[in-house]
């Protein structure tokens, strides 16, 4: 990525420096390749499906959280990993997703299913003006501007208590009873997660996704080719916002509430942490990060009073020594093993 002056002499590439980045991408769409490609996601989904019948109910409830965050982090990573846009404001949409369900019930007695479907559209609608304004700024200023939107949304939710119930948040029996059961809730969220990730995967691998990556690598050159960089980035921001809002609506099944902290800039930090821990150069890295972050956090909170210390230390170590995250490291390990295997043969 291009940065400023001397500082980027050894600029870090977001894609993991895996040995075979080129060979895999433009693979011909022959049937065998397609089959081979489908195997892994199908197997992963099957494993996750079976977990519903093997895990205890407490773990399943935590897995509900993980699934919501997996979508949240993957959607955020569309900006982070693909477009190279560091947003500290995705919580705006996450929170709006939750509030769409909660406030829809509170003020208009809308059924859960209606608001759940509505949430991503509300998220997208709000993302349009925010994206148009925030994307006028570049890099750090973009990050800080999204942070300001996050704080603005938080303040609004907290101070407009006639509408939002203020700091207390909205609680109520707005989630259908069936979904409050750990297993059905998990299975429902799993289905939504699989569909969302497939859609996001599609976006990543569409010509649009390619343009985003090209902009990230060399904005000026893409602009010179006549591509409207600004509009492409706004579009990415809106898509990400829609899925973040969907994640927020998913989170409601776990939290059964909507409250201002969901909009706060520290909440915006979560998906970024998750993406970094899991590896933002890979598609499934953020989802893996969500899994690790959530289970790590839950265990630490219960048994450590200093969980922030541990989280901070882990984050620092990853950022300093393992910049492509866990998935990057795994991919590297896979590459090493494969080479070793080939060498033996």
């Amino acid at each position: 990525m291009s940065t400023y002056g001397h500082l980027d002499t050894d600029a870090h590439d977001v894609d993991p420096p895996g040995p075979d980045t080129r060979s895999a991408r433009p693979a011909p769409a022959s049937r065998t390749v397609l089959l081979r490609r489908a195997t892994a996601p199908v197997a992963l989904t099957a494993v996750m499906f079976l977990l519903a019948f093997t895990l205890g109910s407490t773990t399943l409830v935590t897995m509900q959280e993980v699934l919501a965050f997996a979508v949240f982090a993957t959607a955020t990573n569309l900006l982070l990993g693909q477009a190279g846009l560091v947003s500290f404001g995705q919580a705006v949409f996450f929170g709006i997703g939750s509030y769409t369900v909660a406030l829809g019930w509170l003020h208009w007695q809308l059924p859960f299913w209606a608001t759940f479907v509505l949430a991503p559209f509300v998220g997208a609608l709000v993302a349009i003006p925010i994206g148009l304004v925030a994307l006028r700024a570049r890099k750090l200023y973009f990050a800080l501007s999204t942070l300001a939107f996050s704080e603005l949304a938080y303040q609004l939710a907290e101070s407009r208590y006639n509408f939002t119930k203020g700091a207390n948040g909205v609680f109520g029996p707005f989630v259908p009873t069936a979904l409050t059961q750990p297993r059905t809730g998990y299975l429902f969220l799993l289905a939504v997660t699989v569909v969302s990730l497939l859609l996001l995967w599609k976006v990543n691998h569409s010509p649009f996704g390619l343009v985003l990556r090209a902009i990230r690598e060399n904005r000026e050159r893409v602009q010179a080719l006549g591509v409207n960089v600004y509009l492409h980035q706004v579009a990415a921001f809106v898509i990400s916002g829609a899925f973040c809002a969907l994640a927020g609506a998913m989170f409601v099944i776990y939290s059964q509430s909507g409250y201002p902290e969901l909009l706060d800039w520290t909440t915006s930090g979560w998906p970024v942490f998750m993406a970094v821990i899991g590896g933002m150069g890979t598609f499934l890295g953020p989802a893996l990060g969500a899994l690790i972050y959530q289970f790590g956090h839950d265990q630490l909170v219960l048994y450590f009073s200093d969980w922030q210390l541990v989280l901070g230390a882990v984050l620092l170590v990853i950022v300093m020594f393992w910049p492509d995250g866990l998935m990057g490291a795994l991919a590297r390990l896979g590459g090493v093993i494969r080479r070793w295997w080939k060498g033996r043969r």
Partner: peptide, 13 residues
């Protein structure tokens, strides 16, 4: 994503 990464993901998850 490369199949190997996918597999790594499945395995690790």
């Amino acid at each position: 994503m490369k199949p190997i990464q996918m597999l790594a993901a499945v395995a690790s998850a």
